[in-house]
Computed example of a mutant assay.
Amino acid sequence: MTHSFDYDSSSYNKAVIDVEDYGAKGDGSDDSEAFEKAWRVACSSSKPVTFMVANDKKYKLKPLTFQGPCKSNIKLMIEGSIEASSDRSDWDGKNQRHWLLFNEINDLEVGGGGTIDGNGNIWWQNSCKIKTSLPCRDAPTAMTFSKCKSLKVNDLSIRNSQQIHVSFERCNNVHASQLSISSPESSPNTDGIHVTGTQNINITNCVIQTGDDCISIVGGSQGVKAMSITCGPGHGISIGSLGSDNSEDYVSDVMVDTATLTGTTNGVRIKTWQGGSGYARHIIFQNINMKNVENPIIIDQNYCDSKKACNQQKSAVEVSNILYKNIKGTSASEIAIGFECSKSVPCHDIVLQDINLVKEGGGIAKSSCKNVEWTKKAQALPEPCDANY
């Protein structure tokens, strides 16, 4: 925040900080400066504050950082709409990865039933995944929560993000609930909820429709629980991208419980790069309903997001202690269970219990297995295949 403001010190004692009291118009003009000023007052308050974004108006914002630490607890009530600037040059010379960044704030609560609109169409049109002749560049995440502790984010509509919709980065003790997240199926890299380097996070009662993963859980995350999730369209619920750049990485203690996935590219997926090290372990997927999902259950230790083929490497992230329980529904592809594991670091302690997946429209689905040690408990359809060591 670079602006300098004069304000009445008595504002510090107000229990409610309304952005309109600091110059926000909500009329289509840029309200960034007013939000900055209001945040500085709220963050400096010696007692708990409600930061109010009133309803029935749409406030336009350039990239903005809500910086902590703050002196007291803040409740950010977004009852109206916040919309991103449509001018990509507003990010020139700044971090392209963020639109609204909440950094190093403890005991923050964000809610109010309002809308966060990333206005992402102009970014999608200029993505290298849409126009392959263009160089690939970062696009902003709509809402990033970085290094926040004891965080609550609930009852919001987040839509049309430039790239990822909501990202939790190096946070601790997070509750995210009742989020409605949506962007067109064709929008590139628009993950719904992204979790990285975060400990102890609960994600509940969310409806997510995007052009990429509904939920992506990546390196350094531990103690993640996602429950009562409705997903689709999108790329499903994904754990991984571990070991990229031959790095050491980990994810552990994850539970996805009670989810419905409809028409997604993948169902529940674990993906790791060759050449990395570390682990993905103690992961449970249970009580999941698949409807016309292309790859319902998948582990891929040979993930390669590159135009060129990735070279075979000996090292790999270890995938172990994975439970799939009570997963039912239909597969859009013939292969409903696909385990593509590393020859040098095979997947092991993979348990399939009460699985019933058939082909969409009728017929028997199949399994594909490579370098995996699995155990079947109770029913498992399709029948798990040989490991093919």
Rank of each mutant, 00 (worst) to 15 (best):
K291D: 15
N311S: 15
A336H: 07
I335M: 09
G223S: 12
L242D: 01
I337M: 04
M227Q: 13
N289V: 14
S221E: 05
A332Y: 13
P296E: 09
N289W: 11
Q286H: 04
G243T: 04
K308W: 08
Y279F: 15
S306L: 09
I284L: 12
F339Y: 15
G278E: 07
Y303A: 13
H235D: 14
A316T: 11
D257Y: 01
I288T: 03
Q286M: 03
G236H: 04
T260E: 09
I270N: 03
F339H: 13
K314S: 08
Y250T: 06
I283F: 13
Q274Y: 08
A309F: 08
Y303P: 00
K325I: 02
N246C: 04
S228V: 05
I237C: 01
L242S: 05
S221W: 10
S247H: 10
C310M: 04
S331F: 10
S333G: 11
K291C: 05
A309Q: 09
Q313A: 13
Q312S: 13
S306D: 15
S216L: 15
M227H: 11
C304T: 05
D245W: 13
D257M: 03
G276S: 07
V319H: 07
T260C: 00
F339C: 08
E334H: 06
S331R: 08
T265G: 11
T258I: 06
K307V: 11
I322Y: 08
G236S: 06
G219E: 12
T264D: 02
L261G: 01
S241L: 12
S221Y: 07
N289H: 14
I337V: 12
G275M: 01
A280H: 09
Q286P: 01
Y250C: 04
G220D: 04
V218Q: 14
I283R: 08
S221A: 09
V256K: 02
G276K: 12
Q222Y: 05
S333F: 12
S241R: 15
A259V: 00
I229V: 04
V317T: 08
N321W: 06
G263F: 00
D249N: 03
K307A: 13
V256M: 04
K328N: 15
I337K: 01
Y250R: 05
K325Y: 14
